[in-house]
Design a binder for these strands. Structure first.
Lengths: 181, 181
DNA sequence: GAAAATGCGTCAATAGTGCTGACCTATTCC
DNA sequence: GGAATAGGTCAGCACTATTGACGCATTTTC
């Protein structure tokens, strides 16, 4: 083993440290990356605090949200929206069902399906969670001009670009559904 | 044990399922909550793919980002920005150091400090990651009018409200720093 | 009507990121 | 010289996600 261990000086010579800050470039700042990071962190922090008091995490929130937005949603549809695996979903969903926040009802047309509905308890937790988040969004949007909501919504929609299909799926479901089979 | 187990029907009677979708309320949609979710997921997906090829995760990205934004940052400052514990940071930071993306240099004024600098390798990975994200932000902002960037930045800034101090800290650091001790 | 496909549940193992608590060194401050 | 500060590290736990492999019930297809 004649291989020598590189000294710190040698390493630095091979790849010297950089001391200049990574500055804003062009019209689109690196700043936006940080803004997204901090904004999303606060956005989720609101709900996280409440969830923790129920012994839940963010995953529970997401399931609860979409089940409330689209009662009667199937497992497969939920998996598509969340873009996680069946195994990841099941553990969390099971807790929500066992603790009575979500109920499963076999489909009538296709009895293999287990359609998901919020219970009263589930609906009210969702409302509690959403209220906090909506409040923050509301406060952030208020006062940035009348065009604010439209501009921001359009920005977010474009950011989620490849997933626009998920949003339009919700559009059709939220409006057309709601009657028990 | 005379306690009976509630039948499904009994449970449903106690807390009936809700079949009406959770619809948009007032000026601020529940829709915005989904928009934030989908937007952030795509925002991080860009970088995640690249990171995975290096065997890294999002935590590595965040450290790398702030070290690049503010070379010479101390551990304590980084902990404040990321809002995680020292133990969480150290595991990830260690990998970045061991693999030569970040270098530690003892402070000159206070030799207890371990100031963090990106190496050339670290700077270039950060640029690679940021380019993807900036591209998406750029595309999302382009075409929503000249006031777009300003409105969106202000919205995000307000969303991150309680953390504005973190952003202004960066402001001062990004501009004033950069000379090796 | 039998075979194949679909919708869902579940066991088992692993990774990434976060946490708490405890304890250690080196350095600076008073 | 003793306390406070900057940082490192060990050990254990929680949550969310992953992949792979089966199993069961129900539709669909030929």
């Amino acid at each position: 083993m004649s291989k020598t261990i590189a000294s710190r000086a040698e390493i630095e010579q091979a790849d010297p440290i950089v001391t200049t800050p990574l500055e804003t470039v062009g019209a689109i700042d690196f700043r936006f990356i940080e803004l997204m990071f901090f904004a999303y962190r606060q956005f989720t922090a609101d709900a996280d605090a409440i969830l923790a008091s129920y012994g839940f995490g963010r995953a529970h929130h997401r399931i609860l949200h979409f089940v409330n937005r689209s009662p009667g949603i199937t497992i497969a549809e939920l998996l598509d929206l969340l873009a996680i695996t069946k195994q990841s979903l099941s553990r969390v969903l099971r807790q929500l069902i066992d603790e009575g926040f979500v109920a499963q009802v076999p489909g009538t047309e296709d009895r293999r399906q287990r359609r998901l509905y919020p219970t009263g308890k589930g609906r009210s937790l969702t409302l509690e969670l959403s209220r906090q988040q909506a409040r923050r969004i509301d406060a952030a949007i208020a006062g940035i001009g009348p065009e604010g909501p439209g501009v921001v919504a359009e920005f977010l929609r474009r950011m989620g670009g490849d997933e626009r299909s998920a949003l339009s799926w919700l559009d059709t479901k939220v409006l057309n559904q709601g009657s028990l089979p």
